[in-house]
């Protein structure tokens, strides 16, 4: 169970309401470059948090998989570059998600038998493989990527009329969040947490651990794929740089800043990251060193709270609760601090 679930649900509702009204009081730039980006970037981070927090699978392939959806979309709809098949944009969405999920299942089947650092290395290899695949198969993309990718009419023109895409990203984010929260309370999701904690016992209890992990990885790929589709609508383009090692690290940093043990952390981290990434470039004396700034913030957060920003929030609540006499809950995937 997610600790403090009820309190946070209330908070989440207030928060979503506030977001939904934000087009009324924030600038178009803020809406598009900060909030909309936060929403879609949060989804891929949430997919990583889902896998790591509930399945103990820290996947460095999420960016690669999000790229699969994006590149497939870019290739099958009208665009400048790629296959230029010019199918209906919705067909592109479905195909993108299906291919991303299938690739995720295949990767998952390969990686599901390894754990810890080996899993990390394997998924990193997948990510790099995808990066070079899109870069070097110039028929499908090349390093220059695919430009002017057509989005469905409902997306409108994200650059000049950002409201539509913002609401789409908001609704999809809420749906993804709700889906993950739902899934982790189904037999599939509870069993995934069982596998996270004790795969050996799960085998003895009759579960097919490798299959379970594979399917969870496929679900993670599907969620990442959603983010990839939205990112293409937002950017109107995609290139291998969008799924390179830099972006992979960004997503990992986002997840850790936000809080690797809570799904909400994906969006919180994405917001902090996007805001810093955007606004620190306006600070003159920082010059081109804003990446260092993000690194420092990352370090401070990791040192202060392994649970990220949400972890800090939880510690604060825990403090308050302990004062009032009740015990504090630990996060679902927090490293087990067994007393000796």
């Amino acid at each position: 169970m997610i600790a403090g679930a009820r309190g946070r649900s209330g908070l989440a509702i207030v928060f979503i309401g506030l977001l939904a009204a934000s087009p009324l009081f924030v600038s178009d730039f803020f809406l598009s470059a900060i909030l909309t980006k936060t929403l879609w970037l949060g989804i891929v981070a949430a997919s990583l948090i889902f896998l790591s927090g509930y399945g103990n699978m820290i996947s460095l392939a999420q960016t690669g998989l999000y790229g699969v959806a994006g590149f497939v979309l870019g290739n099958v709809v009208a665009a400048d570059g790629g296959l230029k098949v010019a199918w209906d944009p919705w067909v592109g969405v479905i195909l993108g998600l299906v291919v991303a999920t299938v690739v995720g299942l295949v990767f998952g089947a390969v990686a599901s038998r390894s754990e810890g650092i080996y899993f990390l290395m394997l998924t990193l290899a997948f990510g790099i493989l995808l990066f070079y695949f899109w870069g070097q198969v110039t028929q499908l993309s090349g390093f220059g990527g695919i430009n002017s990718i057509q989005a469905p009419g409902i997306v409108s023109k994200p650059r000049t009329d950002p409201d539509n895409l913002f609401y789409i990203c908001l609704v999809v984010s809420v749906a993804v969040y709700a889906l993950i929260r739902y899934i982790v309370r189904t037999p599939f999701g509870i069993a995934l947490q069982g596998i996270r904690d004790e795969p050996t016992r799960m085998r003895a209890l009759g579960y097919n651990v490798a299959l379970h992990r594979t399917l969870a990885f496929g679900l993670g790929a599907f969620l990442a794929g959603i983010s990839g589709i939205l990112s293409v609508w937002w950017n109107t383009r995609i290139d291998p740089g969008s799924v390179g090692l830099g972006r992979t690290i960004d997503v990992l940093v986002i997840a850790i800043i936000g809080g690797i043990f809570w799904i909400e952390g994906g969006w919180l981290g994405a917001f902090v990251f996007t805001a810093i990434d955007t606004y620190s470039r306006n600070i003159d004396w920082l010059g081109p060193r804003f990446n260092t700034l993000i690194g420092v913030i990352f370090l401070v957060i990791v040192l202060v709270s392994p649970g990220g920003l949400i972890g800090i929030w939880e510690s604060a609540r825990g403090l308050a609760r302990r004062r009032s006499g009740a015990g504090a809950g630990l996060p679902p995937g927090a490293p087990a601090e067994r007393s000796g």
Partner: peptide, 18 residues
């Protein structure tokens, strides 16, 4: 950073934000 994605983000910052 020579990726089109970053170039667009920075273009947007200069034009749409600043």
């Amino acid at each position: 950073d020579d990726t089109p994605e970053k170039a667009i983000e920075e273009t947007r910052r200069l034009i749409e934000q600043l």
